[in-house]
Deep mutational scan, measured.
Amino acid sequence: MDPFVVLVLCLSCLLLLSIWRQSSGRGKLPPGPTPLPVIGNILQIDIKDVSKSLTNLSKIYGPVFTLYFGLERMVVLHGYEVVKEALIDLGEEFSGRGHFPLAERANRGFGIVFSNGKRWKEIRRFSLMTLRNFGMGKRSIEDRVQEEARCLVEELRKTKASPCDPTFILGCAPCNVICSIIFQKRFDYKDQQFLNLMEKLNENIRIVSTPWIQICNNFPTIIDYFPGTHNKLLKNLAFMESDILEKVKEHQESMDINNPRDFIDCFLIKMEKEKQNQQSEFTIENLVITAADLLGAGTETTSTTLRYALLLLLKHPEVTAKVQEEIERVIGRNRSPCMQDRGHMPYTDAVVHEVQRYIDLIPTSLPHAVTCDVKFRNYLIPKGTTILTSLTSVLHDNKEFPNPEMFDPRHFLDEGGNFKKSNYFMPFSAGKRICVGEGLARMELFLFLTFILQNFNLKSLIDPKDLDTTPVVNGFASVPPFYQLCFIPV
C-alpha cells in the first residue's frame, strides 16, 4: 500500500478516535471549553503556568470542569470545598494515580508514587510505618536530621561569610537525610558517588519541569519514536535504579534480621516474612523503585522550600529577627534545636507554614484518578478519569488567608500570638494520596531553619526591599529566582 495512503488512514483513525473520546459521556461530565481534535484544549493552557490557566477557566466554568490534554480527559478541581469533598470525603474513590506514560515506562507500575490498587496500598502502608518507626538502627529519624543539620551548619561556616548561592548546600542536606534513612549512610558533600546522585536528581527535576515532558505524557507515541530530553530522564532513572540495586545486594549479604539498620533492611525482612506468599507485593523490584521514589520526592521539594525560605527571610528581616528572638528565648545557644521545641515556638512554626503556603511549591499536585465511576456534584466521572487538583486555589484562598499574595506569618497566628491551624494548609496535597514523607519534610524544615538561624545572621547583597521573591514557574514547580547571601556567624 502507498505510504501516503497509510499515513492518511492513520491520521484519520487518530482523528476519529479523538472525536469519539471527547464526545463520549460529555453530557455527564462537568462543563469545559470545547476541545480541538487530537490536541484537545492545549492551546487554551499556558504550559509554563498551568495553575494560572486553571484559575482563569474556573471563573468561566465553575469549581469543577473538564479539560482535554491531547486525548487525555481530565476533570479539574478548583477551590477548597471541591478539593476537600473529593480528596477527603470521597478519598477512596479519588485515590488513584493519574496516567503518566513516562513514569509507567520507567517504574513499570512498581513503587509508591505511580503505583495503584493493592500494590500501592500495601507499599504505602509499609513505608509510612517504617518512616514513623523511630527505632531503626537504634537511631531515631530526628537524630538523623539533627546530625545532618549540624553538618549543614559546618558547611555554611566554610563560606566564611562571603557571598554564596545556597542551592547546592541546601540540596545536599535533605538528600543526605533520605540516604541515611534508606542506606544507613550519609555522605560527605564532596563524595563523588553522592555528587553523581545529586546531579541525576537535579537533572531529572529540570527535565520533568519542561513543556516537552508534558507533551510526551499527552502524546506517548513520542516516547519511542522521537529524540528528546525524555530519553535522558529514562537513562538517569535507570542509572539510579541500578545503583540502588547494588546497595540492596550489599544489604542482603550483611543484614541482621533482628537489628534492621535502615529502610532497605526493613523491606528485606518483610520480604523474608512473605516469601511463601506468591501474591506478595514485597519484591526486589518494588524495593528498588520505592527507594528511588523516596529519593526523588524527598530531596528537591525540601531543598527548594529551604532555598525559598531563606530568600523570604532576607526580604523580611523583621520576621527573621522575631524567629531568632524566639530561638534565643526557648533554645538558647548551648544546645541543639529539637522537635519538642516546636510546641513552644508558635512564631517560628507560623513562619515555616507561611513559607510553604506562600511559595505554593507544587501548584497542581500530582494528578489523581478516580478508581470507579463516581457521581460528584451531579456529574458522572468515569472510572480512570484523571483528576487535576489546584492546590493554589486552596493555599491562596483570600477568605482563609487575607492578602494571600503577601508573605505574612500572621496567617497562622491567632490574636494572642498562638499558632493557628488551618484546614486550607495543603502543600502536601490531601486525602489518601497525601505525601508519604510529610512528617519528615516538616521535621527537616523546622530543624534546618532553626539550626541555621541559631548559628548565623543572614545578610543580603542588596537592599532587602529590592529582592525579587516572585516565583519562577516552570510548569511543574514554583522555584525561587537566583540569589546570593552571606551567612554571618553569630
Rank of each mutant, 00 (worst) to 15 (best):
F4R: 04
L7T: 11
V8Y: 08
V8D: 00
L16S: 09
W20E: 01
R26N: 11
T34D: 08
P37A: 04
I39Y: 05
N41A: 00
N41G: 01
L43Y: 10
I45V: 07
I45W: 04
K52N: 15
T55E: 14
N56A: 15
L57F: 15
K59Q: 09
P63V: 04
T66A: 03
Y68K: 12
L71I: 10
E81I: 04
K84I: 07
L87F: 07
G91D: 12
E93F: 13
H99V: 11
F100N: 15
A106L: 09
I112G: 05
W120T: 04
R124N: 03
F126Q: 02
L128Q: 15
T130V: 13
L131S: 03
R132N: 15
F134E: 14
E142N: 05
R144N: 11
E154A: 14
E155P: 01
R157W: 10
K158H: 13
K158S: 11
T159G: 08
A161R: 10
S162L: 13
P163D: 07
A173K: 02
V177A: 06
I178S: 05
Q184K: 13
D188G: 10
D188C: 13
N202V: 15
I205R: 13
Q214R: 13
F226L: 14
F226Y: 06
N231L: 11
L234G: 05
L245K: 09
V248C: 08
Q252W: 06
M255E: 01
P260E: 06
R261C: 05
I264K: 01
L268C: 06
L268K: 01
I269A: 13
E272Y: 11
E272A: 14
E274G: 08
Q276T: 13
Q278L: 13
L287R: 00
I289P: 06
D293G: 05
L295H: 01
G296E: 12
A297M: 06
A297C: 06
E300A: 12
T302A: 09
T305D: 00
R307I: 10
Y308D: 00
A309T: 10
E318P: 08
T320P: 06
T320C: 13
A321Y: 15
V323D: 00
Q324D: 05
Q324N: 10
E326M: 02
R333F: 12
P337D: 01
D341V: 04
D341R: 03
R342L: 14
H344Y: 14
D349R: 09
H353L: 02
R357A: 01
I359F: 06
I359L: 07
I362T: 10
T371F: 05
F376D: 00
L380V: 12
K383C: 06
S393H: 01
D397M: 01
K399L: 11
F401D: 00
P409G: 01
P409H: 01
P409Q: 02
F412N: 00
N418A: 14
K420A: 08
K421E: 10
F428V: 02
A430Q: 09
C435S: 01
E444S: 05
F446V: 02
F451A: 13
F456R: 03
D463M: 13
L467R: 05
V479G: 11
Q484L: 07
V490F: 14
